[in-house]
Design a protein around this nucleic acid. Structure first.
Length: 589
RNA sequence: GCGGCCGUAGUCUAGUCUGGUAGGACUUCGGCCUCCCGAGCCGGCGACCCGGGUUCAAAUCCCGGCGGCCGCACCA
């Protein structure tokens, strides 16, 4: 099997997908019906690995930064994605060649063939695209054929909510909107203080045209969206204290425009000083994302952040970086996106819903302004205008006091609609206005992770071949199974003793596995292949002195120690407080 | 969606051209054996992607579909 793999030298993607299927990490869903592209089912090991990775995200963002995790629905009424701009932007205009049936992006064709600019083409609707294609006589670049009607392909899953077909709903293509639409309540829960962050981890749906990259591109996948709200006029980012000196490897848009993928290695602080990254919070989250990937086993030099060009960016973003990891098969692939969404989403929802979702921020000292006001003297207005009085009083509050004063000076009266207002009807006074704060829509930076991709890169970076055997060297704190427990041989009471140890470890909260099948070597090999960091073996000495051997997955070294010290030592080991050599005395081979 | 290649147990594969009982290896399971690294022996489970057609007879030939890989396109 392994020899076979080495002989054919397939890429890691193939090897990992095969291993994943064989050992039950994940596989393509609906296999008994032939399988459907873009959907995946995680087995026991994969689900556990994914949970452990997701918990790592929780640890970094929820526990340490106090970001609030929420869980919102996957289906949203049409309005939500109309407001967010997805209904308009989450689709591509396509034309089909009537001759060879090839499909092309209509806008791309016009850019290339008719030499129209990207921004011009983007504005065109289907009808205009059709005309532009006709006008410029655009033909199929493959066979020279003519094109049919341009059509949009919407990449959101559309459905109806309830039995009424007019109630259109969409499966969310991102979890972010579930946060934005609940902003008011979330802001309250954050004690009405900025900055604050909200995270949502859950499934998202994108009806990809041709998803053929395993966990890398799925139609249903797990997204982790963090929306971090801040005051755009208060750039202070307290995270810089922690991450300011962290280095980032950036590929800047300006380099890409020159056709280069040159990497600028720079600290977070410097990147902000030089203006490479517009928002401090965004830079800070990029640093945290880098650390996360390192903890998943991806070294810094195999990571980079690549800036999106304006036309590559999502419709809501002012600046975007993709965090990329180098993988064997495709080179650089995106594992997280960092978008500066500004106030775009909240503004849109405010407009579409009609609900004021601005926040109020009190000034440290109220700003006192002197302001002229017109005070209607009702005692004079009443007798003069009778039933019109109320209306006039309202209208007076709308006019500019300065202007009125000037008119009085010049003409001795002014016309309010058809009414003649004289100085005797009103009083113009100066009064002190106190502005206690301001109302504004917070800005947002969004770090967004793809859980499934994290699972994939974790697997790829854990993959090793040692002496012809596959070892998944997961970081010990995300390994799906922590400890394997084995009787050296399955007789003479060793299995019974091993089961006791196994139960004790389970009771202590470890994820453990008991295995007595085959020879001990076979069991170690099997455990290595699913990445179990430690193996505890019960042998004949155990029966005499209650000690066991503990085997390290990566070095295959063994130490020996008493059963009763295992729980405490192993807890420390999995929390990275002690190393393998600290678990006991080395066994000579 | 298009083009090329491909589809036999969990995995790798023989058989397909030339239609006639689907065979092996690894894995897995049970047993024996086994005092630390996929050892050995015995036994068991397990497959022709789906549908239609041709034929006495289809894994094999024909048609359609589904799925995979590679390329194109797409990836907000």
């Amino acid at each position: 099997m392994v020899e076979n793999l080495e002989r054919q030298a397939p890429d890691k993607f193939t090897v990992i997908n095969e291993l994943a299927r064989r050992r039950g990490f994940f596989w393509q869903s609906y296999e008994i019906y032939g399988g459907v592209g873009g959907f995946v089912t995680y087995g026991f090991l994969g689900a556990k690995l994914k949970q452990n990775i997701e918990n790592k995200l929780r640890e970094i963002f929820v526990k340490k930064l106090g970001i609030m995790e929420i869980e919102a629905p996957i289906i949203a009424p049409g309005k939500v994605f109309e407001a967010s701009g997805h209904v308009d932007h989450f689709k591509e205009p396509m034309v089909e060649c009537l001759n060879c049936k090839r499909r092309f992006r209509a806008d791309h064709l016009l850019e290339e063939t008719a030499k129209l600019s990207a921004s011009d083409v983007e504005k065109l609707n289907l009808e205009e695209l059709k005309e532009a294609i006709k006008e410029h006589n655009v033909r199929c670049p493959e066979c020279g054929g003519t094109f049919g009607e341009p059509k949009h392909f919407l990449t959101m899953f559309k459905t109806t909510i309830g039995p009424y077909s007019e109630a259109v709903g969409y499966g969310r293509p991102e979890a972010a909107q579930g946060i934005f639409v609940e902003f008011r309540r979330l802001y309250e829960m954050a004690r009405e203080k900025l900055p604050f962050g909200v995270m949502q981890m859950g499934h998202a749906l994108r009806n990809e045209i041709s998803p053929r990259q395993g966990l890398i591109r799925l139609r249903e996948f797990t997204i982790v969206d963090i929306e971090f709200f801040f005051d755009p006029e208060d750039p202070n980012c307290y995270l810089l204290e922690d991450v300011g000196d962290e280095t980032l490897r950036l590929v800047l848009a300006e380099s890409k425009l020159r056709g280069s993928e040159e990497i600028v290695e720079i600290t977070v602080k410097e990147a902000l000083e030089k203006g490479y990254i517009k928002v401090a919070w965004q830079a800070a989250f990029m640093a945290l994302a880098k650390r996360l990937l390192m903890e998943l086993g991806v070294p810094a030099e195999n990571q980079r952040f690549i800036e999106k060009l304006p036309w590559e960016r999502a419709h809501y973003s002012l600046q975007s970086f993709d965090q990329e990891v180098y993988v064997d098969r495709w080179g650089w692939i995106e594992v997280s996106g960092h978008a500066y969404r500004t106030d775009y989403d909240l503004k849109q929802h405010m407009q579409f819903s009609g609900v004021d979702i601005r926040v109020f921020k009190e000034y440290e000292k109220p700003i006192v302004k002197e302001k002229k006001v017109i005070k209607p003297l009702m005692a004079k207005l009443g007798p003069a205008f009778k039933q019109e009085t109320q209306k006039i009083a309202e209208m007076l509050s709308e006019v500019d006091p300065e202007e009125v004063e000037a008119l009085f000076k010049a003409k001795g009266y002014f016309m309010l609609g058809k009414h003649k207002i004289s100085p005797e009807h009103v009083e113009i006074t100066t009064c002190k206005m106190e502005e206690r704060g301001r109302r504004f829509i917070p800005h947002v930076v969004e770090p967004s992770f793809g859980s499934d991709r994290l699972v994939y890169v974790t697997l790829e970076y854990a993959y090793r071949v040692k002496e012809g055997r596959v070892v998944l060297s997961f970081p010990r704190d995300i390994a799906p199974i922590q400890v394997g427990v084995y009787p050296l041989v399955s007789k003479d009471g060793l299995p019974e003793k091993a089961l006791q140890v196994y139960k004790m470890l389970i009771d202590e909260g470890f994820t453990a596995e008991y295995d007595e099948a085959g020879s001990i070597g076979r069991r170690y090999a099997r455990a290595d292949e699913v990445g179990i960091p430690l193996g505890v073996t019960i042998d004949y000495d155990t029966l005499k002195d209650d000690t066991v051997t503990i085997r390290d997955r990566d070095t295959w070294k063994q130490v020996r120690n008493s059963i009763n010290v295992l729980p405490e030592l192993l807890h420390k080991y999995f929390r990275k407080k002690v190393e393998f050599k600290d678990l006991g005395t080395l066994v000579k081979e």
